Simulated assay, not measured.
Amino acid sequence: MSSRLAGKTAIVTGASRGIGLAVAQRLVDEGARVVVTARTKETLAEAVALLGGTDHALGVAGKADNPAHQDEAIQQAISTFGSLDFLVNNTGINPTYGPMVELDLGAARKVVEVNCIAALSWVQKAYRAWMKEHGGAIVNVSSLSSIRAAPNVGFYGATKAMLNSITELLAVELGPNIRVNAVAPAVVKTRFATALYEGREDEASRAYPLKRLGLPDDIGSVAAFLLSPDSGWITGQTVVVDGGVSLTAGAE
């Protein structure tokens, strides 16, 4: 593994497991220190241990849409590791499953709050605390459902489409010293996505040209690339990582 991120510090939200943990692990493997967030201290302690302990990682527990939690995580990153070079907005929720016409509007408002407004708030705070003066890179974790219809998770996809737009606008506003990109996975084998493949993984993966669902590491490697100097002329892009499924007609 390269050391292209040595000396850098990242915050990765929603990183106690799944895609967030895989992103954090890849960043650590490439030399960065990471602050990982999630709702519970116990799962974060396990994540920090997996990431190599407190020399490499720090866990800050809280809800991603809580401004006080955001402030604490950013302050801890800077005071503990000395900088805040990267931000990965990975936290996302989708508490409903079914037709959008039957969607509870209270739940819809909460999804927008967490998936979109909280992500923007993290960027604003990271910008003011460090990146405005020192530069940096940001990756927002979107979804393939942001660019093609996804029955039963449609509103989640709509919020991720908004996140893609936020990504583009921030890239224009924050250049040249801060790059902002997004990564849009298809179905990745995580607890969050279980309802999309559990008990029918062979069927679910049949439409993928690569004949498998995604793994968290598939997204971690792309996120690390988008944060690294190797993507120094890429900003405002939503990079689809989907095993080719968006190329196939009628795929989920």
Rank of each mutant, 00 (worst) to 15 (best):
L174Y: 10
A57R: 09
N164I: 01
F86K: 10
K8W: 01
D230K: 03
L5G: 02
F225N: 04
K8T: 03
V112P: 10
V101M: 07
S16E: 02
E102Q: 10
I93A: 03
E252L: 14
S246M: 03
L50A: 15
S146I: 09
E133Y: 04
V48S: 00
I74P: 05
K160S: 03
R33Y: 08
H134G: 08
P216K: 00
A49E: 14
S221W: 04
A195T: 13
D242G: 10
Q76E: 15
V23A: 07
L105S: 01
V153M: 04
A184V: 13
E113W: 06
G18F: 06
F81R: 01
S142H: 07
N140H: 02
S143H: 03
D230R: 02
A73T: 10
G236H: 06
D242Q: 03
L84K: 07
D55R: 14
L44V: 02
A24T: 03
V239H: 11
I178Y: 02
G59E: 15
E72V: 09
I117F: 12
A22H: 07
N90F: 10
A119S: 13
V88K: 09
F86A: 11
V123L: 10
P99Q: 15
A57K: 02
R39L: 03
R109T: 05
A207R: 05
G82C: 08
E252M: 08
A73P: 08
V153G: 03
V28H: 05
S246G: 02
L169W: 08
T96G: 07
G199R: 11
I178D: 00
R191H: 15
D230E: 05
G220C: 12
Q25G: 12
F192N: 13
S246H: 00
V28K: 04
R200V: 07
V222P: 01
L174T: 09
T96W: 12
E102C: 09
K41R: 12
S146Y: 10
P151I: 06
T167V: 04
A15D: 09
R200C: 06
L44M: 03
V153L: 11
V23I: 07
L210N: 10
N115L: 11
I19Y: 07
E113P: 06
E133S: 09
G154I: 13
Y208E: 15
V114C: 15
R33N: 15
D230I: 04
D218K: 02
L213V: 08
T194C: 01
G136V: 12
Y197R: 12
W130C: 02
D104N: 12
A149G: 15
R39Q: 09
E133M: 00
E46S: 11
G214P: 00
N94M: 01
A193K: 06
M131Y: 08
G135I: 06
Q124L: 13
H56S: 00
L5R: 10
A73D: 00
L58F: 04
V139T: 13
I147T: 06
W130A: 00
K132N: 12
P185H: 06
Y156D: 02
